[in-house]
């Protein structure tokens, strides 16, 4: 994959998705099918993205570094920064459609489809780290704590890392 195509892959994934991890399924499909990245690198990038400062979507910068070094991280950063500029055009159009039930239903259907696709991708990411009783236990506990929102995300990751290190001994 050439650098321009690599950049366009990140640009396309962000242009066709929303939110910090919305581009995960598209990037996973494009980069793993072209053998540019592995599910393991996606898992590593997502984990690093969670403990880095700033918006959670910066995991793609980490993925860029893991797959193409510093140039890859810069291409990824630019690729995810450009699509949000469409908000400047959308803010004019939004007023006319935001309350239309069919437009809202389209967004709702898209979000449920995104959830379904994300489940498959997240399982692939989990599989890359090895699915066993420990990983399932940690994933379930982290998910439960994430839903309760009482413990900061960094605290959950620290506890998960500590538990895995202790269990590995």
């Amino acid at each position: 994959m050439t650098d321009p195509v690599y950049f366009l892959t990140f640009l396309k994934a962000s242009l066709l998705s929303s939110g910090g991890a919305g581009n995960l399924p598209i990037l996973h499909a494009d980069l793993t099918s072209n053998r540019v990245a592995t599910s393991g690198q996606f898992a590593e990038a997502l984990a690093i993205g969670q403990i880095s400062p700033g918006p959670s979507g910066l995991w793609t910068v980490s993925l860029g570094y893991l797959t193409r070094g510093l140039p890859g991280s810069i291409l990824a950063a630019v690729g995810i920064t450009l699509p949000p500029f469409t908000i400047l055009a959308l803010r004019h159009a939004y007023g006319t459609v935001r309350d239309h039930p069919v437009a809202l239903a389209f967004m709702r259907g898209l979000n449920f489809a995104l959830a379904g696709v994300s489940i498959v991708v997240l399982i692939a990411v989990l599989r890359s780290a090895g699915i066993n009783s420990t990983s399932i236990l940690i994933a379930t506990a982290a998910g439960g704590l994430g839903l309760v929102k009482r413990i900061p995300v960094l605290g959950i990751f620290a506890a998960a890392a500590l538990a895995a290190v202790v269990m590995a001994r």
Binding site: A21, A43, T134, A139, A142, G143, A161, L162
Partner: peptide, 17 residues
């Protein structure tokens, strides 16, 4: 070893989100 804990946690939090 720590990453083997962080990855499942990332997946769990992703599903929670």
């Amino acid at each position: 070893a720590a990453l083997r804990g962080i990855v499942p946690a990332t997946v769990g939090i992703g599903i929670a989100m």
